[in-house]
Amino acid sequence: MATDDSERTTALHSPDGGDASGPWTELATGYEQARAREDSLDRLVEWPAQRDVLGDVTGLSVLDAGCGSGAKLAQLVQDGAVASVGIDISGNFVSESPDLRLLQGDLSDLAAVPDLVGRRFDRILFLQSFGYAKDPVHALRSARALLEDDGFVLLTRTQPIRYAIERAEENGTTLGEEYFSTSSFSYRHRSWNDGVTLTKRPYTMSDLLNIFSAAGMWVEKAVEPQMSREIAQRYPHKQAVLDKYLGILVFRLRPLPGR
């Protein structure tokens, strides 16, 4: 999963809590179409940054939790990853290969997925999918249990200020009010499928760091990717989005010693 910010989302306050993964089955096709566009922020900014932080995957096993169609994982297999698995709730997958297996399932509790029992992975990815976990601490602990001793989790999330800006504009409130709000909100992603409503829990930077710590992980590296000057000049409408709404956060997480 990833975020393409070519159009604003429509943010609405909602009394419902948590992130429902069910609507993703309807959004999957629209997401893949948006990501395939030449000016997709995923193509221009997010995936290159994720790939850079991930590093060389030759001979490494990768688990992609919330893999969408599995296209990114398929690319990693082409780059040398082996015995790799993708899991997504939608089940709309690319073709498998000897080193690529794609499973329909929920990323909220990876340890409970039958096909993962007894498996260990060198790299585990949550590429803009972590927000769909029912219990984020449990989801990350579950992933941590599947890591090889020298493995790490690559996790990306939308900069939380972005959502606060959108809600402030929608509700006529201030940035601070919305950034620190604890009320869940619903939105429709216009560039994916504006007929589907998703519910989000708001979060702050401290929320993310506390989740990592509670799950027994520490941040080895954090990146806030931006466009190069050349790409920004080529796609000024996308640079305008980043200038106003910021972008994503990329974390490389490793287990805390002794946890």
Rank of each mutant, 00 (worst) to 15 (best):
residue 115 D to H: 11
residue 151 G to Q: 02
residue 234 R to I: 07
residue 159 Q to K: 04
residue 238 K to D: 02
residue 27 L to W: 12
residue 175 L to Q: 09
residue 87 I to C: 09
residue 25 T to H: 06
residue 25 T to N: 01
residue 241 V to M: 05
residue 17 G to I: 07
residue 123 R to T: 01
residue 52 D to E: 15
residue 224 E to G: 05
residue 13 H to A: 06
residue 236 P to F: 04
residue 238 K to Q: 12
residue 159 Q to H: 14
residue 73 L to W: 01
residue 200 K to H: 07
residue 7 E to S: 00
residue 2 A to H: 13
residue 24 W to S: 08
residue 196 V to D: 07
residue 215 A to Y: 07
residue 251 F to V: 03
residue 168 A to E: 09
residue 143 A to H: 12
residue 142 S to N: 05
residue 200 K to D: 11
residue 154 L to F: 03
residue 136 P to T: 11
residue 238 K to W: 08
residue 143 A to K: 07
residue 195 G to P: 03
residue 136 P to Q: 14
residue 56 D to W: 10
residue 160 P to C: 06
residue 257 P to K: 15
residue 238 K to P: 00
residue 72 K to P: 04
residue 83 A to N: 12
residue 230 E to C: 03
residue 138 H to C: 04
residue 223 V to Y: 01
residue 93 F to R: 03
residue 226 Q to S: 12
residue 143 A to I: 00
residue 216 G to S: 04
residue 163 Y to Q: 05
residue 91 G to T: 06
residue 62 V to G: 02
residue 230 E to L: 14
residue 212 F to W: 10
residue 86 G to N: 05
residue 142 S to C: 05
residue 16 D to M: 10
residue 136 P to K: 11
residue 234 R to E: 12
residue 35 R to K: 14
residue 141 R to N: 09
residue 92 N to E: 15
residue 160 P to V: 06
residue 65 A to R: 12
residue 139 A to L: 05
residue 94 V to L: 02
residue 243 D to G: 03
residue 11 A to M: 08
residue 24 W to N: 01
residue 128 Q to T: 11
residue 199 T to A: 08
residue 240 A to N: 09
residue 8 R to T: 13
residue 117 V to H: 12
residue 249 L to P: 01
residue 136 P to N: 09
residue 197 T to H: 00
residue 15 P to W: 09
residue 127 L to E: 06
residue 182 T to K: 13
residue 198 L to M: 08
residue 115 D to Q: 15
residue 221 K to G: 00
residue 119 R to N: 11
residue 196 V to Q: 07
residue 163 Y to C: 04
residue 81 A to Q: 08
residue 171 N to Q: 15
residue 119 R to L: 12
residue 215 A to W: 03
residue 64 D to C: 03
residue 205 M to D: 10
residue 205 M to K: 10
residue 75 Q to L: 11
residue 40 S to I: 10
residue 237 H to P: 00
residue 189 H to L: 14
residue 31 Y to P: 00
residue 14 S to R: 07
residue 72 K to V: 12
residue 158 T to F: 11
residue 70 G to L: 08
residue 124 I to G: 07
residue 58 T to P: 00
residue 218 W to N: 07
residue 1 M to P: 06
residue 59 G to I: 04
residue 253 L to Q: 04
residue 189 H to M: 13
residue 46 E to I: 06
residue 135 D to K: 13
residue 185 F to L: 08
residue 152 F to N: 09
residue 118 G to W: 13
residue 2 A to Y: 15
residue 92 N to H: 15
residue 152 F to T: 01
residue 231 I to K: 12
residue 81 A to R: 03
residue 195 G to R: 14
residue 225 P to L: 11
residue 207 D to Y: 09
residue 237 H to D: 10
residue 12 L to K: 10
residue 185 F to E: 09
residue 91 G to V: 13
residue 182 T to N: 14
residue 74 A to Y: 00
residue 89 I to V: 12
residue 202 P to W: 07
residue 77 V to P: 05
residue 46 E to L: 08
residue 6 S to F: 08
residue 190 R to P: 01
residue 72 K to G: 06
residue 90 S to I: 05
residue 55 G to T: 13
residue 82 V to E: 02
residue 157 R to T: 11
residue 22 G to C: 03
residue 91 G to R: 10
residue 44 L to F: 11
residue 220 E to F: 07
residue 124 I to E: 02
residue 13 H to R: 15
residue 12 L to A: 04
residue 42 D to L: 02
residue 140 L to A: 02
residue 119 R to I: 10
residue 215 A to H: 06
residue 67 C to P: 09
